[in-house]
């Protein structure tokens, strides 16, 4: 690729030439620092999820028996909705990387289009998550106003239809981790959408045209891809395993 990083620079200039030995700008390096610390938070969360799963291995419910709903239907569709959410996030990650690529060509129209699509994809994801939370809280009767009567939140019975005759044993930690992990991730998605939107406004105003490069799109792109990356892990370790 044509970025600065792939250029050949001789060692003496690199390490003693008064420039970054990593050949990246200050802002980009600080974004990576932030992402490492954020990745450690998510890593800690998912590792503790694994801890609970192994400790309660005999009673931990399986997610494909719980997340079986699709909007507008009453059928049994295990994991399909989550797969759809994953797909939406992957696609919005792709539009983001296309926006970065357009930025490298100083193609303002391209950046605007792809960044706008990224914002739309992010909003779709946050909306899907709201629906999933609602369905989960509403429980077996699907009525959110009577949520207090279902066992979902107390966490002792799970399973198809959540009925007491056909229970899958559960532990409260299942719901606690569901809300904490997906909630923490959802907050990241939401703030990512807001940040992308602000950068989109700057692109429309022509700010980066004036500066001479679209590196800011690259930096928010790093954050957005990170959010996608985290979801890949949440999807596997919460829903699949």
């Amino acid at each position: 690729m044509s970025g600065e990083a792939s250029k050949v620079i001789d060692q003496t200039t690199l390490w003693e030439g008064g420039r970054s030995p990593f050949s990246v700008s200050y802002g980009k390096m600080m974004m990576w620092f932030f992402l490492i610390s954020d990745a450690l938070s998510f890593g800690g969360l998912l590792a503790s999820l694994g801890f609970m799963k192994l400790k309660y291995a005999d009673v931990w419910p399986s997610s494909e028996l719980i997340f079986t709903h699709l909007p507008g239907t009453h059928g049994h569709f295990p994991l399909i909705y989550v797969a759809l959410m994953t797909f939406i996030l992957i696609v919005s990650s792709v539009t983001m990387v296309l926006a970065v690529e357009a930025g490298h060509r100083m193609d303002r129209k391209g950046v605007t289009l792809w960044l706008a699509l990224t914002v739309v994809g992010g909003l779709f994801f946050v909306g899907s998550q709201a629906w999933e939370w609602m369905t989960y809280i509403a429980g077996p009767d699907g009525d959110i106003s009577t949520w207090a009567d279902n066992a979902t939140l107390s966490g002792h019975y799970y399973g198809e239809g959540f009925s007491a005759d056909n229970p899958v044993p559960g532990v409260p930690q299942y719901a606690q981790f569901f809300f904490f992990v997906t909630g923490f991730h959802g907050t990241h998605v939401f703030s990512g959408v807001v940040i992308n939107f602000i950068i989109l406004l700057n692109v429309l105003k022509g700010k980066y045209e004036k500066v001479g490069h679209y590196e800011m799109v690259e930096k928010v792109g790093l954050y957005w891809h990170f959010v996608d990356l985290v979801w890949v892990f949440v999807f596997t370790f919460y829903y699949l395993i």
């Binding site: 690729m1 044509s2 970025g3 050949s23 200050y26 802002g27 060509r105 590196e215 690259e218």
Partner: peptide
């Protein structure tokens, strides 16, 4: 501080 040599270089054809 955002206008620096590294960023100005990130262009491709």
């Amino acid at each position: 501080d955002d206008i620096i040599e590294y960023s100005l270089d990130t262009h491709h054809s």
